[in-house]
Design a protein around this nucleic acid. Sequence first.
DNA 1: CTATACGTTGTACAACGTACGGTGTATAAC
DNA 2: GTTATACACCGTACGTTGTACAACGTATAG
Lengths: 258, 258
Amino acid sequence: MPVKRTGSGQPSKTLALLWGLAPQSTPRKGPARSLTVEQIVEAALELADDLGIDAVTMRAVANRVGVSAMSIYTYIPGKPELLDLMVDTLYAGLPRASWGNDSWRDRAQQVAESNRELLRQHPWMTEIAALSRPPLGPGVMAKYEHELAVFDTTDLSDTDIDAALSYLLGFVQSHCRSARDAERATTDSAMTDAQWWETNQSLLAEAVDPEKFPRAVRIGAAAGAEQDSAWNPDRAWRFGLDRTLDGLAALIDALPER
Amino acid sequence: MPVKRTGSGQPSKTLALLWGLAPQSTPRKGPARSLTVEQIVEAALELADDLGIDAVTMRAVANRVGVSAMSIYTYIPGKPELLDLMVDTLYAGLPRASWGNDSWRDRAQQVAESNRELLRQHPWMTEIAALSRPPLGPGVMAKYEHELAVFDTTDLSDTDIDAALSYLLGFVQSHCRSARDAERATTDSAMTDAQWWETNQSLLAEAVDPEKFPRAVRIGAAAGAEQDSAWNPDRAWRFGLDRTLDGLAALIDALPER
DNA sequence: CTATACGTTGTACAACGTACGGTGTATAAC
DNA sequence: GTTATACACCGTACGTTGTACAACGTATAG
């Protein structure tokens, strides 16, 4: 059964793991532990980055750190918790330059772009559910804290600050997910967009009646022609980011000063 | 191996299936077929709606229509194609009232809300990859055609119309995905948000230093208190939809008339 | 020295998608 | 009418997943 969802374990165990709270420290009874949680998470991250999230199996991770699959379970309760740890670890490692006196809009744009960069370097992150409701580990908290400061200079209420940040990050994730899907569609099928188009053109031409779908035919063709493909990630990014920032500006700049 | 991705089959076969182009019609050689593709897709949809996307296995679908698992493969090349067909079928069944002379903003809001409604009635749709780059079936085409008309009365270029619609739908999907994750987090763990909070409060209080995370503590508490939970889907929806429409308005209303 | 707690591992299970080969049935060819 | 052929259908089997369980060995506690 596939496990791509996080947060399924007992939350207390997960939280203790995330914050590295060891129940007791050094003098345990049996043989000494041969690994650390960090080593396991590291190995899992390398696998995910190199071969994709599907390659992160308990057996593969165990093999990479030199133990048997079941040994992992003495360090980590299960796979969902491993995914939680992977995400939190990456978040913890993010650069967090201080904001200086940039405007909220500049800050928001930087946050969007650094999140995009993270998701481009680790595309598998767009495939797991840990992003919308991430585990409350130290990395997540530090990221949240830093990004909330985007709206320090605005007059938004606390709840609106939270909503605004969620909205901004939601756009980034949504876009990166689409970009990943698009890239995979071409690499998976070993077909460029152009080849795909050629293969399907005749079939589509037969099926799609321009009189029945006038806008779709016209606009689909225009969009495909102007960009070099059916979907241009960079163009979609710029369009979406501008819209998102404008949307937030419509709220923020209309506020009465407090 | 889990298959939750669509579009992995040969595109031509998939397209033929989607548009219902039978290679030859009636006089085949062997025994008559006992099923139709529609029946199979119907059964798969019922399973997904009743028990979630994980319950849609080839064996379960086959069992529901009264044949063995392998018989399905004489109708449909594989599971990705089945998912494609499910999505296209739902899209085809969507109501598409004519627009009258609503403003683009009213139209956009209606599109957003009807998409949200669809994703609420079929939450499993947020979990499969068929939404960002859907298969070009008749249902998808009809939906695309209808929704493009949102921007008929604007002066947007064709490529911008396409981008604007993608942006709008991206928000809806992103929101519904989060809403689904949040709902599942409470139902899966058989824990209400309040219970979860109580369980973890002491641990978090110990780990999270308010001096290190001042904004996170303040804003997290405010957001949790004002809403009745850590995340209120309806509030997030209204916030996000307003921002999205404002963002589009900033582009559309600033255009010089053509 | 003995008891106990713990790290590690091999085996096993159920579930998944689907490749493969066999079986029976309908039409096509003669 | 007989034979050949194409096709629908099915049972079995394979490789893969997460992880439960029990066995085995090792270090410390008494």
